[in-house]
Design a protein around this nucleic acid. Structure first.
Lengths: 223, 223
DNA sequence: GATCGAATTTTGACTCATCAAAATATGATA
DNA sequence: TATCATATTTTGATGAGTCAAAATTCGATC
């Protein structure tokens, strides 16, 4: 059984790999940063993950998941996201507080219980943040989404996914009714101010910075 | 934060202490046995638990929880038992399969989530096996129960608690409708055969060995 | 090509939890 | 009281995961 440390590294590598603009390869620096350990620790873990065939490790290059590593990473992600669903839907926790909880529960839950939860929830395809839930056989369906920053002025969108689990940010999103599933309209892009103005429901419009807006992914309804 | 190993030792010591007929002191041998480690490991953990003031450790004597240790043990037990309730009541798992699951989840759940679960379940006082659930402030109410072996022939009882988490045993109990909450009648004690005969619901009577019967605790309804 | 700064790797050390095996203490019995 | 079986403790070792700091390599620039 891989330890929860190993599971965390693989999950992290998977996520960093997604974020990697090109090449799918994760440097020791970003891995160490993402895991909150020193670079030396990242290197030695990289080697040991490579020994277990979870990653391909290129000295002075970086690390990249093997099929085996990717499969385990997706299983961890599946656990994480199904647990988030459970906490929100069955126990009524707020979506802004479930991330950390899921972070530890994801290593403690059995496959059997997980399947039970999946069934109980009606086999959801995304978690409360709109992140896709890998299937039991290790597939993940990424729907093509657009960042709020890329949407034309005046367009109507449906919020689909929020790419940041930070509690503060999620509460901000909540306050302005920009939670996945809701409709909103992009009112303006201010390139000089690097800001985007959006409006949802009956709420007054809100203006947010580009970097914040870039973390909100949407589907176009009408432009 | 105490590690989950520490939590497990304290929980185990608490349980062994309850089982200790006299003196409340747990020997290294029984601790090692209960934890599935060698005696040397038990000794060194006993010392380190003593360093952290969780137990009083007497060389060549044994170990006994301090108030601090007892408090943590009860918090772990509370987590364990509330999780068992949740798995049975909300997710429909069978009571015979929840023990192992709870065994790992109990170290991964936050106090916040636990309180939420407690509320969601309506503040239950016992888990599916009839084991009392410690309160959030560290109290535990042990109701005075009688073992099936001590009940007079012909008496009617209500099953209150089953003192064995073994899956096989719990399924046996289930098959004969002897789950906590159900009524049953003690038909006979056969001292020579060391056996007890019980009957529940519309099922035919079942005869079980003394040691099995001793693990089923009941309340008297009528003798 | 030589040099410099940044990233990476190596080294040595540490903690936690464990084991096997050797050494020792305890308590009962002769 | 001497002995013996059993329980306990000690000792030395191991693996996982970590850090700090020293050593090395890479890649870009001069």
């Amino acid at each position: 059984m891989p330890s929860s440390t190993v599971e965390n590294y693989l999950k992290r590598i998977y996520i960093e790999q997604q974020a990697e603009p090109v090449g799918d390869i994760v440097s020791m620096k970003s891995l160490a940063g993402a895991m909150g350990v020193t670079a030396g620790t990242a290197t030695s873990m990289a080697k040991s993950l490579a020994d277990s065939k979870f990653v391909a490790y290129e000295p002075y290059g970086g690390v990249k998941l093997t099929a085996r590593g990717r499969s385990l990473a997706l299983r961890v992600l599946r656990r994480h996201r199904l647990i988030e669903c459970l906490l929100v839907e069955a126990l009524g926790l707020d979506w802004s507080e479930v991330h950390d909880e899921a972070e530890s529960l994801e290593h403690a839950i059995s496959d059997k219980l997980l399947d039970r939860i999946d069934e109980f929830l009606g086999f959801p395809s995304v978690d409360p943040h709109g992140d896709p839930i890998p299937t039991a056989d290790g597939e993940i369906r990424q729907s093509a989404l657009t960042a709020l920053t890329e949407v034309q002025e005046g367009a109507e969108v449906r919020i689909a996914r929020v790419l940041d689990q930070d509690e503060q940010f999620l509460r901000f999103v909540d306050r302005h009714m920009l939670r996945p599933g809701t409709r909103a309209r992009v009112l303006a892009h201010d390139h000089a101010a690097e800001a985007v103005t959006v409006q949802s429901g009956k709420l007054p419009a809100v203006t947010m910075g580009r970097t914040a807006a870039a973390k909100i992914m949407v589907e176009l309804i009408k432009s």
